[in-house]
Design a protein around this nucleic acid. Structure first.
Ligand SMILES: [Mn+2]
Ligand SMILES: [Mn+2]
Ligand SMILES: [Mn+2]
Ligand SMILES: [Mn+2]
Lengths: 160, 160
DNA sequence: CCTACAAGTTAACCTTGGCTAAAATATTAG
DNA sequence: CTAATATTTTAGCCAAGGTTAACTTGTAGG
């Protein structure tokens, strides 16, 4: 027997804490695990694109310094990027992006920029915004990106 | 020998696109890698706390279903949680949180809730907000959390 | 009390993404 | 041109997190 007449408050208290149904909940974690799979690849191609554009070439040693990892780690990851058709290079030479790599870099960079600018527009300090954006960017859906972009533009309009 | 920190490029053109100095940039990635180390642990203890509170007990099989992984995976991760002093249990029995586990669960849950409510306040749909929050939560600094919370409260005040 | 079935564990395997140390290659100085 | 130095690659190691298959343990029905 369910008494629906006096569970108004309990329902509201519970509602906020309730988890979605099991299968929907599981899909949340699946989405996160999927994001983790491409996260590092995105950061690499984004960085390589930046180095190509601003330094003229993308060297492993620069990537290692920027990413805060050893050169051996870069070498191994680059092997994977090449296997995935995102990067091309000759042994012991600097790196280039394939068409596919450039496309991923462009997407990643744009998304990264939207998140970073949104955080700054919200009032987060530059340093913190950069740190948070570096991680958050890989978990922001298109729907949320659109809303962030609208907010940022609105904010910029107001302060001009 | 290439100077990685060369600033030959004109300031005006570069400014919006410029990366932070190499060591600061590296620290961004270090922060993300650190977050990744605790991410799964946080999700587990948060889920266990929820099950204990709302179901009375936390069974491996429920966790597996909610997380979308196999029971074997849960078993192995729980072994790690126990080794870290976050969870306690007897073989073949259901799970409990240690003091330390409860503390982590409380922090994680609060942070998760702040991010989720913020996304909803921004106008993101419930379904998307839940997915994004599941990943974003682990990469949001205290500074940003505070700002998100303020924004959400302001939004709630307006629409009441 | 036994027996089926549900739940939990273990073993063997895989990929990712880190590391250090050593080897190979490229570049630069003399 | 050669020797020193810088860069890149390779080999061998490790932990995290996932899988399937097989085994162990717990529990509920007849
Ligand atoms: Mn990025
Ligand atoms: Mn990133
Ligand atoms: Mn969470
Ligand atoms: Mn999460």
């Amino acid at each position: 027997m369910t008494d629906s007449s006096n569970d108004v408050t309990p329902d509201r208290l519970c509602k906020a804490d309730a988890l979605p149904p099991s299968d929907q909940h599981a899909q949340q974690y699946v989405a996160v695990r999927n994001a983790h799979e491409t996260e590092l690849l995105e950061d690499y191609v984004e960085l390589i694109a930046h180095l190509l554009k601003h330094q003229g070439e993308a060297r492993s040693t620069d990537i290692a310094a920027r990413m805060g990892v050893s050169q051996a780690t870069v070498s191994k990851t680059v092997t994977r990027l090449k296997a995935l058709g995102l990067v091309s290079s000759k042994p012991y030479r600097s790196l280039f992006l394939t068409e596919k790599g450039e496309a991923m870099a462009a997407m990643s960079h744009q998304r990264h920029a939207i998140v970073l600018q949104f955080l700054r527009a919200l009032g987060v300090s530059d340093r913190t915004a950069r740190i948070d954006a570096e991680g958050m960017e890989h978990h922001v859906s298109q729907e949320t990106l659109d809303i962030m972009q609208r907010y940022t533009r609105e904010q910029e309009r107001r302060s001009s």
